[in-house]
């Protein structure tokens, strides 16, 4: 891992309107993600974990604070356009967010066709098959529509789609939520494979503790809008902080 963090969040604050009032979800989140590592953010549901991810990829702008990717500010109008950074990032959404009107193959090829017009259809097909195999899906299922796939297959297809643009950073939003333990284990293995085989930097949000322990180099805990713990899985187990103890014990 290099010394300078790939992603830096500094005193990130974000509020959303709720019942006519502003509810502060992030209350000064500061976090560094090193190049090549897998950092897992844990915390209660609705605590703002996904909000952190959406800030990292420029889908949300903070009320205050700063997001830097490779040292470039993407969170303010004065900074670089988030669009330039996004091409180097991929995201696996909680509900997969596959394009329902397209079959599995088209889901993978769509963005590549737009961004790499020099590729022929044959090359696109080859790339699609390669990405499907990378996530252990048969190329034969490329003609299936997303609604014909199981939850685990959808997650894997969404990962294949994210990989199609060959990102350096992958963001995973609850990758194992709603999956049975065996399928969740397959997804965990894929997250590890992406790091080992492709060297991608991964930022994962989850409340699935077995998954977090399996894939994380470091774990950060978000509690009441702030990062209250960051360290290795072993350090997390040994932590005396009451919110951490309560979360890990559950």
């Amino acid at each position: 891992m290099s010394a300078s963090p790939l992603i830096q969040l500094r005193d990130l604050r974000k509020s959303f309107p709720s019942n006519g009032k502003e509810q502060e979800v992030l209350r000064g989140v500061t976090l560094d993600v090193a190049r090549g590592e897998t950092l897992v953010i844990i915390g209660a549901s609705g605590g703002g974990k996904s909000v952190i991810l959406k800030h990292c990829i420029g889908l949300l702008k903070p009320d205050a604070g700063e997001v830097r990717v490779e040292g470039k500010v993407i969170s303010s109008p004065d900074g670089v356009d988030a669009q330039t950074i996004r091409r180097r990032m991929g995201m696996l959404f909680q509900g997969s967010a596959l394009f329902d009107s397209m079959n599995a193959g088209e889901n993978i090829k769509f963005a590549v066709r737009e961004h790499r017009p020099e590729l022929s259809e044959a090359q696109l097909d080859a790339l699609m098959r390669e990405k499907l195999q990378l996530v252990h899906l048969s190329p034969d299922m490329s003609s299936k529509l997303p609604n014909e796939l199981s939850g685990g297959m959808k997650k894997r297809l969404a990962l294949a789609r994210a990989l199609a643009l060959e990102p350096e950073i992958l963001l995973y939003d609850e990758p194992t939520t709603g999956l049975d333990p065996v399928t969740a284990g397959v997804i965990d293995d894929l997250v590890l494979d992406m790091q080992r085989q492709l060297g991608v930097t991964s930022l994962v949000v989850t409340h699935d503790m077995p998954s977090a322990h399996k894939i994380a180099d470091r774990i950060a805990m978000l509690h009441e809008g702030k990062i209250i713990f960051i360290g290795t899985p072993e350090a997390l187990r040994a932590s005396d902080l009451p919110p951490v103890r309560a979360f890990v014990r559950v």
Binding site: K54, L59, R86, M91, G95, A97, L98, F99, H115
Partner: peptide
């Protein structure tokens, strides 16, 4: 609702 618009934005579409 299904985050497909976000997915498009993330993929620079």
């Amino acid at each position: 609702e299904k985050e497909e618009l976000d997915a498009m934005t993330v993929m620079d579409l």
